[in-house]
């Protein structure tokens, strides 16, 4: 099941003014695995995410995804290639319904244009129906189908996280990147989230997980990378990472 390399980051560097947020970070994610990226606050996890998804331009290095080089600073192309993400501080389209949020996720895989919309051609109507149907399925998949017609901003925190995942899944990603999905969740919600992530993996989507909750990461991930002060200190299976002296020091601040 876990096979060839899906994403390879080579020597990624990023600095903001004099601050070196990322230095020479290289890692590989294989198809089918859940890959954890952890590290103390400010270690550069989200910066790495933003470089990969094209929101930032890396100052050095490159990303290879599914055999091709990822375009720098073109988030929409990155999404088209098959990388979808969620945001640490949830970014939904607040004044649109939950269903519409997921329907927007289908944008990149559909193609109806202005003329089709104006004339309401058969193809447009069929596509629109398919978009809606797929969105309903995805809401069902993340178990918030009963909130479909509520505005996204009126959903509970946990449901907003789920909606963001559903929206990301709607883009048919090969790699789903979750930025601290368990942040601010209680134990029950975290357990449910874990179940959801497990399900997504079993359905064949590779997952990159940034997380603070070390327990969640260690229990869920096939492999884990640890960032500290913008440098990758280890990349291995959880059992090895857990015992590594440098990781313990990074977290305890020795």
């Amino acid at each position: 099941m876990i096979g060839e390399v899906l994403l390879a980051a080579q020597g990624i560097a990023k600095h903001f003014g004099g601050v070196k947020a990322l230095q020479d970070v290289s890692l590989t994610i294989r198809r089918g695995e859940v890959y954890g990226l952890i590290g103390p606050n400010g270690a550069g996890k989200t910066t790495f995410f933003n470089c990969m998804t094209g929101l930032y331009v890396a100052d050095g290095g490159s990303f290879q995804f599914a055999g091709a080089r990822l375009a720098a600073h073109a988030p929409e192309q990155v999404a088209r290639c098959g990388i979808a993400r969620t945001f640490q501080n949830i970014r939904l389209f607040g004044n649109m319904t939950a269903l519409e949020n997921v329907m927007i996720g289908r944008h990149v895989r559909t193609k109806a244009g202005v003329v089709g919309a104006m004339l309401q051609t058969r193809a447009t109507r069929d596509e629109e129906a398919a978009i809606r149907q797929r969105a309903v399925e995805l809401l069902h998949y993340v178990r918030i189908e009963d909130r479909a017609d509520d505005l996204a901003k009126n959903l509970s925190y946990g449901d907003q996280r789920r909606l963001e995942i559903a929206r990301a899944l709607a883009t048919e990603p090969k790699l789903l990147c979750l930025d601290e999905p368990a942040a601010g969740m209680n134990a029950t919600e975290t357990a449910e989230l874990r179940e959801l992530i497990d399900g997504i993996r079993q359905d064949g989507t590779t997952i990159l997980l940034i997380e603070h909750d070390v327990k969640l990461v260690m229990g869920l991930c096939d492999r884990v990378a640890v960032l500290d002060y913008g440098k990758l200190i280890i990349e291995d299976v959880p059992a090895v990472v857990q015992k590594d002296q440098r990781v313990i020091e990074a977290y305890l601040g020795a």
Binding site: P75, E76, R80, L92, F93, G116, A117
Partner: peptide, 21 residues
């Protein structure tokens, strides 16, 4: 329509709109 939704998404949150492609 699909385009109308995309317009609204951009109005709501341009970065999130880019991130979904």
């Amino acid at each position: 329509s699909r385009i109308g939704r995309a317009w609204q998404a951009i109005r709501e949150d341009e970065i999130a709109a880019k991130a979904v492609g």
